[in-house]
Simulated scan of single mutants.
Amino acid sequence: MSMMKQVLFVCLGNICRSPSAEAVFNAMIEKQELQSELKCDSAGTAAYHAGDQADYRMKQFAQKRGYLLTSISRPVDPETDFDRFDYLIGMDSQNVRDLKAVARNENDRKKISLMTDYCSGGKYNSVPDPYYGGAAGFELVLDILEDACNGLIRKLQEGK
């Protein structure tokens, strides 16, 4: 890649799915030595948890797979995030709709996509929110994110 690409992962509260996407993506960036080409962050469409760490359960499940969730929750800032990031990736269709609702123009809207668009199997149409579920939900989030992050890196590298 000729220029640094920046990705913002977005879910509702920025405590489960998007910080996990950030951690998985960062681990893959490091493993593939792409730190000079790719950077990412995460945010939420709502400010419910602004300033909080990731959900402790999500952190535990991620840590079992070797991912460290270190981000602090923050809301999406349309005035800066659409300028700073090349891709704003929602975890589900509601996140995508919320991002499109705050987009300032067509150029902003072109940067928005759905996380599962990068999955290999076409099996999932969203990264489901695990907040109110059990262990299987957190594991599923990580399974989907690993697949989607791999696909996203492949797509970004094809666009070199």
Rank of each mutant, 00 (worst) to 15 (best):
M4W: 09
L8C: 11
F9E: 02
G13T: 09
N14D: 13
I15R: 05
P19Y: 11
E22S: 01
V24F: 04
F25E: 06
F25H: 06
E30N: 05
L34R: 13
E37I: 11
G44V: 02
T45I: 08
A47D: 13
Y48L: 08
G51C: 07
D52G: 13
M58F: 11
K64F: 13
R65L: 14
R65E: 15
R65Y: 04
Y67R: 08
L69W: 06
I72V: 15
R74M: 09
P75R: 11
V76R: 05
T80K: 12
D81N: 13
F82T: 02
D83P: 06
D83L: 13
Y87Q: 04
I89Y: 00
M91S: 04
V96E: 01
A101S: 14
V102D: 11
E106D: 12
K110L: 10
K111Q: 03
I112T: 06
S113Q: 06
M115F: 08
T116I: 02
C119M: 12
G121F: 08
S126D: 15
P128A: 04
P128D: 07
D129K: 05
P130C: 03
Y132C: 01
G133M: 08
G133H: 09
G134T: 06
A136F: 00
V141T: 12
V141W: 02
L142G: 02
L142I: 09
D143G: 10
D147R: 09
K155T: 13
